[in-house]
Every structure is written in C-alpha cells, then in structure tokens.
C-alpha cells in the first residue's frame, strides 16, 4: 500500500549540550489530517515543530516530506506554511503586504498575486478596512487571521501552528478554533498544531500526540487518547483522572487502573453496579454545569467524581462534606494503563 503520510519523522534527536530537548522522536503525519502535539511547556513540542519547518537542524534522525528527505533543506525550499506563537507579522508591512510576502518573493505576477491575497483575506474574514493597516494597529484576533492567511496564501500542503490561539481571550479562542478547523478542511491542508490546552487539542484534531520530557509518549485519536491512555502521564494530561492500584478480577496488581471522574457513579444509583462501596464526601466544588466531588471510600481509596449540577443527588442535599454516600465503579469504564512514564511509545 502506498504510504499516505505527508511527513515522516524518524528517530529525531535535538539539544544543545546538557539535557536533550528531543529524544528519538518518530512520527507520521497522514495527509489531510489535523494533528495536535500536546504537552507541558518545555516538553519539546515547539522544537519539533521548528524542526519540521526547517528553522532548526536535528542532531540526528531524518525528516521526510512528501517522501523526500528534507532534513538539511533550508525553510524557504520546504514550502511549509507556519503560524508562529506571536504571529511574527512583519511590523513594517501592512496586513495585505504581509499576506502577499510569500508571493512577492516568488515573483508571482501582480494580478494573480492580488487576486489570491484578496481571496485568502476574504476566507479568513478580515474586513477591507483592516487590510491596509500595520500589524500594530490590529487586534489580537485580527493579527491571528493575518498570520493564518499569510501561511496559507502560497498553497502549502502542510501548515504548522505554534500555539496559534494562546494569546486570545477565551471567547475569541473558541470562535477562531472552529474557524481554523473549517479552514483546514476547506483547503485540505495537512495541519500540525502545538498547544498545551487539551480541550483545544481534542476539539480540533483528528490525531493528538502527547509529549513530555522530549519524548512522544502516545499518538492517537482524541477518544483513544482520552479513554485508552498508554501511560499515567498521558492519562493525567488528557484530563482529570483517578489512577490507583487495586485488586480487581482480570487486572494485574502491578499496572495502575484509571477511571475518569465523570464515569464514577454516586448516590443510590451506585447500587446497580457490582463494585459499589460506602464512602464519605471530603469536599465539593461547583463548576457551573458540573460539580467536582472528592470522596474517600472506607477502604481508604480517594476518588474525584464529576456529577451534573442538575442531578437529583445534588438537589437532594446529599452533597455536603462529611456526608456518607455510596460510590459505584462501572467495570467497563475501568482502564488498565499498560505502560509507565519512563518509556516512550509511539504507534
């Protein structure tokens, strides 16, 4: 079967002296997909992005783009669009000239250039009025749109995005997130985004890769990553998780078990499950739609439980610190984490 991946990274290593920033990272990005690299700051995700873009050179390993080795190719010959974290808009050029830059340096004819620039600016939704302004007089959201248009106007088949939504306020972020995804689907460009926000990663991506300490720990669909994490770190980074060891039939004692807080059942309903134990409420915090409840079982196991704020048990004055309550653990929701954080696993 012909390989469908656009980018293939093989055993990439990178670092100056001291601790390496990337260790043996291998990764395939399938054409047309949206891949998000997720990890805490300093995990090497931005470094990986810059290696793909050609802004950094790896110490060892290789980068294949469209089946060709580009490990030592300078960025201008790779034809990859990139949106930098602070957008890196040229401060002396208007929004329009920023977008046309890549066409100017390629010597694209004026009429075609103007046509493509205006169409791309229409696509990202920058008003005519804003197009002649310098970046400094554009708002954060407008700058982001210009950066996106600039990275896409020369029709690259790969788009790299370094925390493109990090500097925006929450409301605008959600709006631009959806626009970004729509744009990616419309243009058919393959996208690799870097973020530290797991919700953003899951909302936008076909594939999510979690990185830590310079290693790629796991890569998979958002669902897979959330429910079937391969290491405790991935489990915790994808969202709140109860991780514990316990004797359950069919589970080994050495490997930890995981259950998401929303899968734990609280109150009378818990009697429906075979594994239901008495427990006591330690604390509860109100989060709007949900409540996060901290309970400890009589056997000493501490669990986070997420319940809907509108649930009957909440109204039935049962959620109060010190209150005795029944906790049920559905066995289908339990997941045994196969790996430990020491090793990197890539699929």
């Amino acid at each position: 079967m012909p390989s469908s991946e656009l980018v293939r990274l093989a055993d990439l290593n990178f670092g100056y002296g001291g601790a390496p920033l990337l260790r043996d990272v291998s990764l395939d990005v399938p054409a047309g997909k949206f891949l998000t690299l997720l990890g805490p700051s300093g995990c090497g995700k931005t470094t990986l992005l810059k290696l793909i873009g050609g802004y950094l050179k790896p110490q060892s390993g290789s980068i294949l783009l469209r089946g060709k080795d580009v490990t030592h190719t300078p960025p201008e010959e790779r034809g990859i669009g990139m949106v930098f974290q602070n957008y890196a808009l040229f401060p002396h050029l208007s929004a329009r000239r920023n977008v046309s830059f890549s066409l100017d340096v390629r010597g694209v004819a004026k009429s075609e250039r103007d046509d493509r620039v205006e169409r791309m600016l229409d696509l990202v939704g920058l008003t005519k009025f804003e197009r002649d302004r310098l970046p400094a007089s554009l708002s954060g959201g407008q700058q982001q749109r210009v950066a996106l248009a600039r990275a896409l106007v020369f029709r690259p088949d790969l788009l790299l995005l370094d925390e493109p939504l990090a500097n925006l306020d929450r409301h605008l972020r959600d709006q631009l997130r959806n626009q970004l995804r729509r744009l990616q689907e419309e243009t058919g460009v393959t996208a690799v985004m870097v973020t530290h926000d797991q919700e953003e990663a899951m909302a936008i991506s076909d594939l999510v890769g979690v990185m830590n300490g310079g290693k790629l720990l796991q890569i998979g669909s958002p669902r897979e990553m959330y429910h079937r994490p391969l290491t405790p770190f991935v489990a915790g980074f994808m969202g709140p998780a109860n991780i514990f060891s316990a004797d359950f039939p069919g589970a080994s004692r050495e490997k930890p078990l995981m259950i998401r807080p929303e899968q734990v059942v609280l109150g009378e309903e818990a009697h429906h499950y075979s594994r239901s134990v008495p427990a006591m409420i330690l604390s509860a915090s109100f989060l709007g739609p949900d409540m996060m409840v901290q309970v400890t079982t009589n056997a000493g196991l501490s669990l986070m439980v997420r319940v809907r704020s509108c649930d009957s048990i909440v109204h039935g004055r049962d959620i109060r610190p010190g209150q005795e309550i029944r906790v049920g653990i559905p066995s289908h929701a339990l997941w045994q984490i196969p790996g430990s954080d020491g090793e990197g696993i890539s699929t």
Partner: peptide, 18 residues
C-alpha cells in the same frame, strides 16, 4: 528585532538576500 521575523520570512520562501 525579533529573529523570528527573519525565520518566518525564510519559511515563506524568501532567500537569504530577499
């Protein structure tokens, strides 16, 4: 001057001279 500006120009296809 932010060196990112120059790298991003390279990424957009500009040669060193450009």
């Amino acid at each position: 001057m932010d060196p990112i500006l120059e790298s991003s120009a390279r990424g957009l296809g500009a040669s060193r001279w450009q």
